[in-house]
């Protein structure tokens, strides 16, 4: 990685799609997700010298994406709080399940989990990260990540009427 634009282009080509999906799993507006990902890459480009070469680049990239996504969601929550509260009060996970029964997948249910649980699930099963990498991205202890994964799976099993 030379830090030049040519090399950076390779990074963008390799990771932009997965980052878009990662951000898009929480941010439902496509334009906003694209803005966030663009912001992520700008941050990566500007702070490339801060990257610890001995660590995982993917984990570092997703840490920045996770922070950008969270700051976006925080701003959005402040601006649109009443609307979100109404939406959450009206639509429960069970209702979502019945509405989208024919297209319901376990990932659709996973999107109804809490933000940290769904992020942990996403990073573990979609990005194939191990627990220590997820802990690095989410700035949590490994034990906390294990608890998040465990609770998320238990809740998913409950939603799918699986015996636990």
């Amino acid at each position: 990685m030379q830090g030049s634009k040519d090399c950076f282009e390779q990074i963008v080509l390799r990771h932009s799609g997965s980052l878009l999906r990662f951000v898009g799993s929480s941010v439902r507006v496509a334009q906003d997700a694209e803005d966030i990902v663009q912001d992520v890459f700008l941050n990566v480009y500007a702070n490339m010298n801060r990257f610890d070469c001995e660590g995982s680049f993917k984990a570092w990239l997703y840490t920045i994406a996770y922070n950008c996504k969270n700051s976006y969601l925080r701003k959005k929550r402040v601006r649109c709080q009443p609307l979100e509260v109404v939406q959450r009060a009206q639509v429960s996970p069970e209702e979502i399940l019945t509405q989208k029964q024919e297209v319901a997948s376990v990932w659709a249910l996973a999107s109804t989990l809490s933000a940290s649980q769904s992020t942990a699930i996403w990073l573990r099963y979609h990005e194939q990260m191990d627990v220590s990498q997820i802990a690095l991205v989410m700035k949590k202890s490994r034990m906390h990540v294990r608890v998040l994964l465990h609770r998320a799976r238990t809740r998913l099993a409950g939603m799918m009427n699986e015996p636990v």
């Binding site: 990685m1 030379q2 830090g3 030049s4 634009k5 950076f8 282009e9 963008v12 080509l13 932009s16 799609g17 997965s18 980052l19 878009l20 999906r21 898009g24 799993s25 496509a30 997700a33 694209e34 990902v37 663009q38 890459f41 700008l42 480009y45 500007a46 490339m48 010298n49 990257f51 070469c53 297209v103 997948s105 376990v106 990932w107 659709a108 996403w122 979609h126």
Partner: peptide
């Protein structure tokens, strides 16, 4: 099960990112 997310990274989006980068090259790591 592959998650069904509507937004996908395409070439135009990647070009947008690359165009938006600052002119100055980042220093080699």
């Amino acid at each position: 099960q592959v998650p069904q997310v509507s937004i996908e990274g395409d070439r135009s989006f990647q070009d947008t990112i690359l165009v938006s980068l600052p002119v100055r090259d980042a220093a080699p790591v």
